[in-house]
């Protein structure tokens, strides 16, 4: 009748029945669907995509078309959101601004992701001086104030790119942005923002790889003869994808915001290109007299930035369950 008596109770075990295993992605999607703010964010993102693609067909006017007889008009039947100081239709310009914002978001995010993933992975896999250099570069980039640095770089870039273009034109008679200077602006913003914003993703990817490498099951698999590629595709990618998706979503919103900021400061998109930031800056001097010219693009920008932040936040809760806020 005497058997082992465990003084530290067995009773609690009965309270912790493991729930049935379900896929992380399935869970994540359900979790996301329950998050109303994230749904709002996703809606905003899709709307932005739609407007960016179809904006020119939706727009009632041409974005650069001036009508000096009808400047600074309040919203009316002809001009839904009124006209700006050059008589351009504000609604049209906001639609085109979406195109700018989305394109910049897309290329900057692609650029920082490629650069960040490449540098981070190189650091983690090659180690040694490569890793050292990458990490110090990240430290140094982080030390600079990013918008100011991006602004400074973009001013320099613009000059250099212009010079290069003139050179190409004179030498070979070739130009890539004669018709539309906006592509030049894209290039400048893309370059400066990528240079300032790559390090977050590099650190993330490096950290993920290093922490995975420590895991015992990886060593075990390696010992069993699993190839590097099998480990990368089987563990690394699925494990890093969640955090990377979150960073990319938040980064996308961040890149659009940075474009608006640079344009607001006057070093981003140049006239007559349409950018929400530049529209705010253009009309800021007249906020007392024509408040709608400042408020409209501002509200649109705020909603878009907010949408991406809500989406990123929801994705974070859904994809990184270990840090999910209960």
């Amino acid at each position: 009748m005497i058997s082992e008596f465990e003084p530290e109770g067995d009773a609690p075990h009965q309270f912790f029945v493991m729930p049935a295993q379900r896929s992380l992605w399935q869970d994540a999607i359900e979790q996301l669907a329950r998050n109303r703010l994230a749904i709002f964010g996703a809606f905003v993102a899709f709307l932005l995509l739609f407007v960016a693609v179809f904006g020119p067909w939706l727009a009632p006017y041409d974005y650069a078309e001036q009508n000096l007889l009808r400047i600074n008009e309040p919203p009316s039947g002809d001009h839904w959101l009124g006209t700006d100081g050059l008589g351009r239709d504000l609604f049209t310009r906001i639609l085109y601004g979406a195109r700018t914002a989305f394109l910049v978001g897309l290329i900057v995010t692609a650029g920082t992701t490629i650069l960040g993933v490449a540098l981070g992975a190189a650091g983690a896999f090659l180690g040694g001086w490569v890793d050292f250099t990458v990490m110090r570069l990240a430290d140094i980039t982080m030390a600079f104030p990013d918008i100011l640095l991006a602004a400074f770089i973009s001013v320099i870039f613009r000059e250099k790119v212009l010079e290069a273009q003139i050179f190409l034109l004179e030498r070979y008679g070739w130009t890539f942005s004669e018709a539309n200077r906006v592509y030049l602006d894209y290039l400048v913003i893309f370059g400066s923002l990528t240079l300032v914003q790559w390090y977050g993703k590099a650190r993330l990817v490096r950290g993920q790889i290093l922490s995975l490498r420590e895991k015992e099951f990886i060593e075990a698999e390696r010992a069993l003869g699993a190839s590097n590629w099998a480990i990368i595709s089987g563990h690394l990618i699925p494990n890093s994808l969640g955090p990377l998706i979150v960073t990319i979503t938040v980064g996308f919103g961040g890149a659009m915001l940075s474009e608006a900021s640079l344009s607001f400061l006057g070093v981003g998109i140049q006239p007559p290109g349409a950018s929400w930031g530049a529209m705010i800056n253009d009309n800021l001097g007249q906020w007392r007299y024509y408040p709608h010219l400042v408020v409209m693009p501002g509200i649109v920008l705020a909603i878009v930035v907010l949408g991406f932040n809500f989406l990123g936040d929801g994705l974070n809760d859904a994809l990184n369950p270990e840090q999910r806020r209960r």
Binding site: M1, I2, S3, E4, F5, P7, G9, D10, A11, Q14, F15
Partner: peptide, 25 residues
């Protein structure tokens, strides 16, 4: 314990009872 001993030292484990306490739920 089956033979109660009051002379057990402090710290000595309680004697054994078979089985588990009930589920409090």
């Amino acid at each position: 314990g089956s033979v109660p001993s009051l002379h057990s030292e402090p710290g000595e484990r309680l004697s054994s009872i078979s089985g588990l306490p009930p589920d409090l739920v």
